[in-house]
Amino acid sequence: MSSVKPDKQQQHDVFQAIADPTRRSLLQLLVDRELPVTTLTGHFPMSRTAVSKHLRILSEAGLVTERKVGRERRYRLEPEPLLELKRWLAFYDRYWDNKLDALKRLVESDES
């Protein structure tokens, strides 16, 4: 019998996590620095409990990590899961590039 536990499966995926504007704002605040939940709460018109719930969803998606420093919890952005979003959006970049190239060819052929 193996004593190895299966990896904890993410409870929220990246797409679910960033769907909420508050969570996107939290990620922006954490881009360059680690911040305590009390500082993050000061940026939003909601309770510390509500901000903590948003941070928990981001954490479950792997987008933030937390560490305890004294009596406070500090949060830091983990950008690697955003690569999944980047790859997904890259397909649509190619789609729009192709559409714009086709439009350019059409316009240029009409000018002749």
Rank of each mutant, 00 (worst) to 15 (best):
F15E: 04
N98W: 05
R67T: 10
P81S: 02
R76T: 14
G62L: 09
L103P: 00
E111P: 00
E66Q: 15
S59W: 00
K86G: 10
Q9K: 15
L26M: 07
S59H: 14
T39G: 03
E72A: 15
Y75R: 05
R24W: 01
L58G: 00
K86E: 10
S112W: 03
K8A: 14
Q10N: 09
D7Y: 08
R76S: 13
D101K: 14
S3C: 03
R71K: 14
T39R: 13
Q16W: 06
R67A: 08
E108D: 07
S109M: 02
K86P: 00
P21A: 08
W96R: 09
L58Q: 02
L40W: 00
S52I: 04
D20E: 11
D7T: 06
V31E: 12
L26N: 02
E108V: 04
L89F: 07
E34T: 13
L82Q: 02
V14R: 04
Y92T: 00
L40D: 02
S3H: 13
S2W: 01
S2T: 14
E34N: 02
V51A: 06
S47Y: 01
K68N: 10
P36V: 04
L103R: 01
K68W: 02
Y95F: 11
M1Q: 07
S25V: 04
T65R: 15
V4C: 04
E78L: 08
S59Q: 15
T39A: 14
Q28H: 11
V107Y: 07
Y95R: 09
P79S: 03
P45V: 06
S112Q: 09
D20S: 12
I18G: 06
L82C: 03
E72S: 15
R56H: 11
F44T: 04
K53T: 09
S59K: 15
R76Q: 13
T49E: 13
L27T: 01
L55Q: 06
H54Q: 14
G62P: 08
S59I: 00
T22Y: 09
